[in-house]
Simulated assay, not measured.
Amino acid sequence: MADQAPTPQNPVDGSFRDPIETVTVRRSPRYGVFLVLGAGLGILVAMILTFAFNGTDQVSTSGVTYSDTQVFGFLALFCGAGGILLGGVVALVLGSMVGRRTVDVRAEHAVVRTQD
């Protein structure tokens, strides 16, 4: 029989454990990046819509005339929220597609001591 090395003792709490374990790694998208990109895309769409249609020359039904900045603000509010929603949906779909692929890897425990 081959000699096996004894399981090392953890210097922190004195327990014995196997330093190498098998863990499952799953990739997932960064949801914040997708939300920010969706918001940016929504604001870009709002800017395009603001300057593509010249509706500020007409008086609204309430008798108020809106400036280009006000129109952009209203559109940015709705298009930005829609872009965030769209970015979140895309991230969830990609997360479910990529999340199916998992990889088993070996991980080693390491104890690092520092002196403060």
Rank of each mutant, 00 (worst) to 15 (best):
A2R: 04
D3K: 05
Q4W: 00
A5H: 03
T7R: 06
T7G: 07
P8Y: 11
P8W: 09
P11G: 15
D13V: 15
G14R: 13
S15Y: 05
S15W: 00
S15R: 12
R17W: 07
R17A: 13
P19D: 11
P19C: 14
I20H: 05
E21V: 11
V23Y: 09
T24N: 01
R26V: 13
S28D: 03
S28C: 09
P29F: 11
R30W: 04
Y31M: 13
V33M: 10
F34N: 13
L35F: 04
V36S: 02
L37F: 03
L37Y: 01
L37I: 02
L37S: 02
L37C: 03
G38Q: 07
G38T: 08
A39E: 02
L41V: 15
I43M: 01
V45T: 08
M47Y: 07
I48G: 04
L49M: 04
T50Y: 05
F51Y: 13
F53D: 02
N54T: 14
N54D: 13
G55T: 10
G55W: 06
T56Q: 14
T56N: 12
D57M: 11
Q58F: 10
V59R: 00
S60A: 09
S62K: 09
S62D: 11
G63I: 14
G63V: 12
G63R: 03
V64D: 10
V64L: 15
T65M: 15
T65L: 15
T65N: 14
Y66S: 15
S67N: 05
S67L: 13
T69Q: 11
V71L: 12
V71C: 06
G73D: 05
G73C: 02
F74Y: 05
F74M: 03
L75G: 04
A76K: 06
C79I: 01
C79F: 06
C79Q: 06
C79A: 03
G82M: 07
G83M: 12
L85H: 05
L86I: 11
L86W: 05
G87C: 10
A91N: 05
V93A: 12
V93L: 15
L94P: 02
L94M: 05
S96T: 06
S96M: 07
M97N: 04
M97P: 01
R100S: 03
R100E: 04
R100T: 05
T102F: 09
T102W: 01
V103L: 09
V103T: 01
D104K: 02
V105C: 07
V105A: 06
R106G: 10
R106T: 04
R106L: 15
H109S: 15
H109D: 14
A110W: 00
A110G: 11
A110M: 14
V111C: 12
V111Q: 12
V111E: 08
R113T: 01
R113G: 10
T114S: 12
Q115T: 11
Q115M: 09
D116Q: 07
